[in-house]
């Protein structure tokens, strides 16, 4: 399961980052490492990107990028 599969209000934990290079670094910068809890808190009006609560901050990510973040419930 990846981060783009979860619904608004759902809470999951990160298992693996498949993103590479700059995106990987960005994700690591915002504290998205293994075992980080993530909650989907909203979607933008056109359905993409979505907003996630990550370590106390709300961060918007595009669904393409979410596909590279594997999560578990």
């Amino acid at each position: 399961m990846n981060l783009s599969d979860i619904n608004v209000g759902e809470k999951v934990t990160v298992c693996e980052l498949k993103a590479s290079d700059s995106m990987r670094r960005r994700l690591l910068d915002i504290g998205l490492v293994e075992n980080t809890p993530v909650e989907c808190v909203g979607r933008s009006p056109l359905g993409d990107p979505s907003a996630f609560l990550i370590r106390g901050a709300v961060i918007a990510l595009r669904s393409e990028d979410c596909k590279n973040i594997l999560v578990k419930r």
């Binding site: 994700l27 918007a60 595009r62």
Partner: peptide
């Protein structure tokens, strides 16, 4: 291709 996008909503 569009690059990855992270945007903080403060």
């Amino acid at each position: 291709v569009p690059s990855s996008f992270t945007l903080e909503l403060p």
